[in-house]
Design a protein around this nucleic acid. Structure first.
Lengths: 143, 143
DNA sequence: AATTCTATTTGGAATAGTTCCAATTCCTAC
DNA sequence: GTAGGAATTGGAACTATTCCAAATAGAATT
């Protein structure tokens, strides 16, 4: 049993728990995101998915992505108004957008820091979601 | 001399400093954002601006907004892929999007917290920009 | 003051990402 | 096997934004 089997069982479980069907399209889309965790855009996911299933439609990919997000299996990542990207990392984390390469890197954020951020809110404000993102460059140092 | 005169002198100064012309369109757009600081979208700004200058075009509003952002006089605010909003608050701050009303509120963020956030980045990562945004609801407590 | 040169504005067309829709296909339960 | 609901599909529609080429305005130079 490899890890993708495990992930797909988890996927099927989550979907059925939510009263949704574990279809092969959803599975293929999910695997495409897991396959290379570089925050792919919908187009990129569509391309990956078509290798496995050339007949899948773009609309379906959009549908599946929405479903997966709703089930909490993946997260949406937005920078400004650039095309939406997706991320299977479910731990609380931030994103760093490298201006030079266009790549996005996950940044670990301790739970304690999240609490500090939440504490910035005025009384009564309840955040369902906190998004933290950086944009900039990476200096390459010789060693 | 009222505050809007002051602001517009500041605007003119900034523009000429950057080698740009202080045109009446830029002034009107800037004033529209200052007028009611509720993070208006481009459409909203366009509507406000047309009251003063019914002949202005939407393209010009887009152009002016871009110019003002580049001059550092206003900031862009993005939530997911919703229409871009604009904000004249130049202090470092976060945004809270109220899901119920759609309103956006500024959240003060101490400089010290910004430093903590920056410290989350791996060595070599230099953030030109940090964006922190909350999404959620506001509980109304009786008093 | 006229001329030139460049920045800016303008309206409309084009683009891009996404959503919508109606028709078909696929499961699941009976 | 059939019925009913869920999911997929292709294409049209939508929307925010950008692009473009022509017109205008302003500053600088003569």
């Amino acid at each position: 049993m490899n890890s993708s089997t495990v992930n797909c069982e988890a996927l099927a479980k989550r979907l059925t728990q939510s009263g949704l069907r574990p279809t092969v399209q959803r599975e293929v889309v999910y695997k495409a995101i897991l396959e290379k965790r570089n925050h792919p855009s919908t187009d990129e996911i569509f391309a990956r998915v078509r290798e496995q299933m050339p007949t899948i439609s773009l609309a379906t990919v959009y549908n599946c992505l929405e479903t997966l997000v709703q089930c909490g299996l993946i997260k949406q990542v937005n920078f400004e108004r650039a095309p939406t990207r997706y991320c299977p990392n479910l731990y609380e984390h931030a994103h760093f957008h490298d201006d030079a390469t266009g790549e996005v890197h996950d940044i670990a954020v301790p739970a304690e820091m999240m609490d500090r951020l939440r504490a910035l809110l005025p009384p009564g404000y309840k955040a369902a979601n906190i998004e933290l993102s950086f944009r900039g460059g990476v200096m390459h140092t010789r060693n």
